[in-house]
């Protein structure tokens, strides 16, 4: 029987549904973080004008935050290595790099926890002023994203221990990889706009 020419026309991207979903989700997340960052920038000079409570230059410890930013950046590298490992069927490598990524993520979170306590000790809490409000909410939501990422990475690590993660379902690692890189990129934006560029 003759083939309908229709059959050859593109009616799908050929991309895995889940991967397409992840890209859309990340697109949506851009507006989420965009709104939070915009709020921070809108309010950035207000606290100094009002004169209540600490302002960014009183508290920021740029060298410290640079180090923890670097740690988070490095976790993107280990994430890439984990994906490469699973795709070539290297189970040990996958385990090692997944765990490394999770650990680097946890180090970043520990740095953030330290930073928060330090700021709090120096008199900045959520209700002190607009700086406290916008800073904690923005970086807090980013931290929550990292935490969820760490949780998923650890879950995948457990799956590799049980041998449930194979090159055939390496898509799982690819998905968390996309998410993880996105969260990293968001941090670079936050670090640049909020820590480095102070007016």
């Amino acid at each position: 029987m003759q083939h309908a020419p229709a059959a050859e026309l593109q009616t799908t991207t050929g991309m895995d549904h889940r991967k397409l979903l992840m890209w859309l989700f990340l697109g949506s997340e851009c507006l989420f973080f965009g709104s939070l960052i915009a709020t921070y920038l809108l309010y950035r000079n207000k606290t100094e004008e009002i004169g209540i409570g600490p302002i960014p230059s009183d508290l920021y410890d740029i060298p410290f935050t640079s180090v923890s930013s670097f740690v988070l950046l490095m976790s993107s590298v280990t994430m890439v290595l984990a994906l490469a490992a699973i795709q070539r069927g290297d189970r040990r490598g996958t385990q090692a790099w997944l765990l490394a990524t999770a650990l680097l993520g946890m180090s970043f979170l520990a740095g953030q926890a330290f930073e928060f306590t330090e700021f709090y000790r120096q008199g900045l809490s959520l209700d002190t002023n607009l700086f406290g409000t916008t800073f904690y909410v923005l970086t807090g939501f980013h931290g929550a994203h990292v935490s969820i990422g760490v949780l998923i990475l650890l879950s995948l690590f457990v799956m590799t221990l049980r041998g449930r993660l194979t090159p055939a379902n390496s898509i799982n690692v690819e998905l968390i990889g996309l998410y993880w890189h996105f969260v990293d990129v968001v941090w670079i934006v936050i670090f640049t706009l909020i820590y480095l560029v102070q007016t």
Partner: peptide, 14 residues
């Protein structure tokens, strides 16, 4: 819920 100031005009919120 947490006493933040996003919309608190007294602290410069708009």
């Amino acid at each position: 819920l947490f006493g933040a100031n996003f919309f608190n005009a007294e602290l410069g919120g708009t």
